[in-house]
Every structure is written in structure tokens, then in C-alpha cells.
Design a protein around this nucleic acid. Sequence first.
DNA 1: GCCAACGTTGGC
DNA 2: GCCAACGTTGGC
Length: 156
Amino acid sequence: MNREHCYWLLKSEPTSYSIDHLKRDKKTPWTGVRNYRARNFMRDDMQKGDLCLFYHSNADEIGIAGVATVASAPYADPTQFEKASHYFDEGSTKESPRWQLVDIAFVRKFSRVIPLIELKADPALAGMMVTEKGSRLSVQPVSQKHFQHIVDDLAD
DNA sequence: GCCAACGTTGGC
DNA sequence: GCCAACGTTGGC
């Protein structure tokens, strides 16, 4: 992919892993992605230092909660080999791991969660993937224009 | 809790 | 390789 896409959006359910968890941990492996498009973005297109919008899904406050950054090169998701893990994949092998991830590091938490409804209503964000109906992809590319608008104009 | 939109699986 | 059935995501 061209380097136009150095911005991303990562979805997480805050009851399992929120921006506050990331703030506490500073850095975490982004485990459990089991969608091929999402994996391909992490494996093929993300580069260390890329910025990511941290999105809270399935929550009381649905929307963008802060910013994270890509903090590693891609590597095999260890949970795919852990039999006890919810993310165990018996079809994957160490020789040829099916699932790849990157580490994500905390950058900042917004003073408010920018609500999805506000993103949808903002003409400057027209075409942004997360605002489209039925957009289930958990790792999404974000244009620089949309990223800047959110960070500069909508966040505190 | 409902259900629409997706993604995956598996029979053929 | 098609597509119906099923499972999951995630907003509402």
C-alpha cells in the first residue's frame, strides 16, 4: 500500500479492553484479530509509528476514545497457539502462522469520547469507513484528512 | 434484546 | 465454485 495510509482505526470493546487499559499498560499486543482483511492491514500495511484512532464499540459511549500508535513490526499472534485461549486456532502452525499482529502503544486519551453519531453527522468525515452502516471491520484505514479533523477539531 | 449486515462453513 | 445455513458484530 502507498504511504498515504499511515492512519488507522482500531475497534475494541471497552469492557474487555479500553483506552484506560492501554493507558495503564502503555503497550499491548493487539491479540485476537481473526478477520483476514484486518490481519492483512496489520501484517502488510502498518508501520511502526503509524497513528491509530482508538474506538470503543458495543459500549455505553460508542465512539473514538483516544489515540494509539503502532509500536512493533508484525509478528505471529501468540494466542493462536494457546489451547486454552478463546483465540486458539488449531489450523495454524508455528511454521506458518495464520494470524499476525502488531504491538499498540498508548498516545493519548481524549477528554471525551467523540460519539459515533457525531462522526456520522460531520460532513468533513463523509466516506469514513466507521460511519458507514454495517461496517464491522475491526482494523480500518483512515485518511489523513479525517484523522487530522478528528484530532484537531473534534478532540479537546 | 433485537436484528441487519457481514464473514465463514460445508454440502452439493 | 455456488450458495444456504449458521455464527458474529455491533448499533440501536
